[in-house]
Nucleic acid binder design. Structure first.
Length: 114
RNA sequence: GAGUUGUAUCGGGCAGUUGCCCCGACAUUGUCGGGGAGGAAAGUCCGAACACUCCCCUGUUUUACACAGGGAGAAGGGUAGCGGGUAAUUCCCGUCCGGAGCAAUCCGAGAGGUGCGAGCAGAGACGCCACACAACGAAAGGCGUGUGGACGCUUCCGUAAGGAGGCGUAGCCGAGCACCAUCUGUGUCUCUCUAACAAGAGAUAGAGAUGGUGCUCGGGUGAAACGGCUAAAUCCUUACUCGAGUGCAAGGCCGUGCUCCGUUGUCUUGCAACGGAGAGUGCCGCUUGAGCCACGCAGUAAUGCGCGGCCCAGAUAAAUAACUGUCGCCGAGCACCAUUUGCGCGUUUAAAUAGUUUUGGUAUCAAGACAAAUUAUUACGUUUUUGUCUUACCAAUACUACCUAGUGCCUAAAUGGUGCUCGGUACAGAAUUCGGCUUAUAGAUACAACACAUAA
RNA sequence: CUCCCCGUAGUUCAACGGACAGAACGGAAGCCUUCUAAGCUUCUAAUGUAGGUUCGAUUCCUGCCGGGGAGA
């Protein structure tokens, strides 16, 4: 899991999506907003109850994303606020497929240092 | 043995890797130690605690404001056999009654009153009249209250959906009873006639048949059948209970932080001071509580009391996790072993094994016999091809030989154990707290009860 | 999280506890017309679900299911 400092707090949440750049994959989408380059990047995950009706499913998807971000966190550049949005079919994925989707989105957004 | 019902409990264990939230200590941004979802955390269907606003009453006070204590009445809501439990309940316990079930057991808003009573079926669940009484209304009049608008009661009057009243319609089939009418024949008495009987006339008694009227009972229809019964879980009353509403997004704290506005100062942006507003899990409420465990006592029980021990999530864009290995549990399949049981044949002749006969199937490499075809002017022979039979193999049947009391079902069925493979390992995630109810839940365990089958 | 409201044909709405649940716009078939439109006739299709009260439930009561709304 991510520590609380690396997650987006309620005040820092970007209010309109129009400011940031959006990236899409087949089961997820990502909104990235630039901030100052000093602070480390922060992440968030949004899933509505229409996507997954049970709270257990929603918690599971949220934990999967935070876990893959925690694995890749050393490679990620500083100074961004990133929000993952789930699409309607995102409950169909297995765990390894879900991790690949998150990695592909991070790569497409040019957040990885390499 | 295989079920059913009720109650209660559990609902994965261990190890490794990578991580998260809270508390404490040391120390300072790290180490160490402790803790980290449920029986339903769910639905939000009830109830309570707690908090605020409002209403009313009492007291302090001349009154008001304010403070303290409390919820009597009205309206509205809820509950409903009876008794008990609880902080409280649409909850729980005991018990009566009604219903379901063979039974264990389960279900029930189960007080009292009034009366709407359609359609179909059926002979029939009524129709009409009037407005004395009851009910409702108030244009006009009267009386009362009030300055007045008006309000209340009442007379004449009006209303009919009809409580009570009157009249009437309908009334099938069968049986019984009563009354009336007609007819039939009989008995008794009196009179006439006769010697007498018979006959005739009159009166009276009871019987039978037919018809009519009235009453009672039954049939059939329907949930209910003639003036009663049953019925509101949409009405009314009674008893008990809740003052009404909002719900932790209740409610409160906070400046030195953030945003906006205004004023003043320096006076170009900007900065500083003061005031106001807003936002804000920054902090409280927030987890020690109708708490959990064990024992004893009271009680049929729900539950209560006493005593001892324990501290057991507290996040806030929201922690409690992810992956791997192994073990466990359940189901299915396969293999091996063990036990039990069934059916057939048999102990007077078995089966298995060997040989022969008959029948059927397969194979046609080789050999033999027979038949057909091919080559055609005709005949015969040879070669080739095809078919059948025998020799070959298998199965069944019958007989013979051999041998003993078991053997067969071409490995039958059930149960248990071991090993291997495959599949499954549920429902589901705290958000103010607690007590209930309802719903979802792979499976596992314990106890109690009931009915069925079998054996003793 | 807390608190409210609503479920009837494909759609929008009706229906004292009483038959076979009605209307409009739809859809299908036929008639009319040279053809289409309009018009006429016929058909189609529903009480969210499970119990209870009642002789009888769309309506009354209770539990689930689904949808919608309010409070920052």
């Amino acid at each position: 899991m991510l520590p609380r400092l690396k997650k987006v707090s309620r005040k820092e949440f970007p209010k309109g999506h129009k400011k940031g750049a959006t990236y899409h994959s087949s089961h997820l989408s990502l909104v990235v907003v630039k901030k100052d380059f000093e602070t480390p990047s922060k992440f968030s995950f949004v899933i509505s109850s229409k996507v997954a009706k049970k709270a257990v499913e929603r918690n599971k998807l949220k934990r999967w994303t935070y876990q893959t971000i925690q694995k890749e966190y050393d490679n990620i550049k500083n100074g961004f606020v990133c929000v993952f949005f789930s699409k309607k079919n995102s409950t169909e994925l297995l765990h390894s497929q879900f991790e690949d989707q998150v990695r592909v989105l991070l790569k497409n957004a040019h957040l990885l240092k390499k």
